[in-house]
Design a protein around this nucleic acid. Structure first.
Length: 429
RNA sequence: GCGUCGGUGGUAGAGUGGUCAAAUACAACAGACUGUAAAUCUGUCGCCUUCGGGCUACGAAGGUUCGAAUCCUUCCCGACGCA
């Protein structure tokens, strides 16, 4: 993997100032990612409701799968034997896998609760928690001594995932970029807990990295042995890129400035190829957290803001130095009948669209908008037809991927701030 | 014409004397969704409301009863059987 910065954000007079944002190129063994880029989420080695051609046609350059899900089903050995996640799912471009760290949160502290990746609460202090009443709440993920025990949401079986295990699984899944195993904490946890969790995430980062390096060495030994024996049929030896994954470390630290900075400083000193910024945020905390972190992380390595992807968040992230985003929003919202437009989100099942024969969005170049009307898409949703989720996902994915591409172009054209103002001025949340 | 059974909210369908403005499902309407426990979930769904409650309702009209969607009478409508 190789990351090159092409251009940094400048103001309207072309002055560089102190801006963190940049446009670049991330080269992997499976192709190039133009950053900033939006990564399509394909948790179970499929971007839900879309085939790879549709994902590609929407403009997507890279797809992210999930360690936890693929480990449970079909099992990482199968994916490995298939030739890796990309080959398995017939996606020829770059791939990434998440470590399962998010499931520590979504199946743990957040399980059965009304908290998610980004909470609405405007005053996060209100979120502070009675951790004590909470202890017997049902969870599918419990944090243990040196890992997390998961109770499978599929069949109830128990699985213990350690950092080593997560990295082993990810090596078998064979994506181009993988992530360290971390603990995504709930914003409802108090500072003492955030600190404790951060220590854990840091230990896990070191262990993830150590296991990653072990696996690389083992692989190198095996390959040199095969070459000596004349058995290397991989055809990849002349590749300028390592065929093994690049590993990104993850910064946590909740909403606390000291913890965030502490985490960035700790993680940046480890030999990671890039970085993820994780956490469950109260909306208003997100930009400060990203800024604190990216001011510390080394400029020359890529940064991925995990799980974020609403339009206003993309501008915020990019302006503050984020190179990669992934988010389920385009596909999940699409399947659930909400569509992005330049003026805001549209709930396509609303009565007013039943006889609206215009496209979802005028001048949109996605497959859906070029071929179908609002009335038709609404009809598909009312009729619970499978094509509904597909057409909606195509549009939403195109919308978000393309928005990020436009932002990238604006950076290159040195009119990022104008573009931001123009877009957000017309977009209502 | 006689007999039997049945007519419940947009639909299907519970309910057979009070706890019924009426289960449940569907439809409808509105909303939520940010490293996918998610083609999912939430709310509303007779009318009015100062959200305490008020009013009108279970084919129609009468009646019995403290009280009726529920019991009785007649009528209207439907299905089936016999002429």
């Amino acid at each position: 993997m190789r990351f090159t910065i092409e251009k940094k954000i400048k103001d309207s007079k072309g002055e560089a100032g102190n801006y963190l944002g940049r446009a670049g190129v991330l080269e992997t063994a499976h192709g190039v990612i133009h950053t900033p880029a939006f990564v399509a989420v394909g948790t179970k080695a499929t971007v839900k409701s879309l085939n790879p051609e549709q994902v590609r046609e929407a403009g997507t350059e890279v797809v992210l799968g999930n360690t936890y899900h693929l480990y449970l089903q079909p099992g990482e050995e199968i994916v490995k034997d298939a030739g890796g996640i990309g080959k398995f799912m017939n996606w020829h471009g770059p791939t990434m896998t998440d470590s399962g760290g998010f499931q520590v949160f979504s199946l743990g502290a957040a399980y059965g609760k009304d908290i998610s990746k980004v909470t609405k609460i405007t005053d996060p202090s209100l979120l502070i928690p009675e951790r004590f009443d909470d202890s017997d709440a049902p969870r599918l993920a419990k944090i243990g001594q040196d890992g997390v025990s998961f109770k499978s949401h599929l069949d109830g079986s128990i699985h213990y995932i350690t950092p080593e295990k997560s990295i082993q699984i990810q090596h078998n899944l064979g994506a181009d970029i993988i992530f360290a195993f971390d603990e995504c904490t709930s914003p409802t946890e108090d500072l003492a807990y955030q600190e404790e969790a951060l220590e854990r995430t840091h230990r896990w980062a070191e262990r993830s990295l150590a296991e990653h390096q072990n696996l690389k060495q083992e692989d190198a030994r095996r390959r040199s042995h095969s070459i000596l024996e004349g058995q290397d049929h991989s055809g990849r030896s002349e590749d300028s890129f390592e065929h093994l994954p690049a590993l990104f470390g993850i910064v946590q630290g909740g909403r606390d400035e000291n913890l965030r900075k502490k985490s960035a400083n700790f993680i940046k000193n480890l030999d990671f190829d890039g970085f993820g910024i994780g956490g469950s945020f109260a909306k208003e905390d997100m930009s400060t957290a990203v800024k604190w972190v990216n001011e510390i992380l080394p400029e020359e390595k890529p940064r991925h803001l995990l799980g974020i992807g609403e339009p206003e968040d993309l501008f915020m992230g990019i302006e503050n130095g984020v190179d990669l985003f992934d988010c389920v929003a385009p596909t999940r919202l699409g399947r659930n009948g909400t569509l992005y437009t330049k003026t805001g989100k549209m709930i396509i099942m609303n009565t007013k669209f039943r006889n609206d024969f215009s496209p979802i969005e005028k001048n949109c170049n996605c497959y859906t908008c070029k071929n179908y009307t609002r009335a038709y898409v609404a009809h598909l949703f009312h009729g619970k037809e499978m094509l509904a989720g597909t057409l909606a996902s195509i549009h939403n994915l195109y919308f978000i991927v393309n928005l990020v591409k436009e932002i990238r172009q604006a950076i290159i054209n040195e009119n990022f701030f104008e573009f931001k103002e123009e877009f957000l001025g017309g977009y209502s949340k």
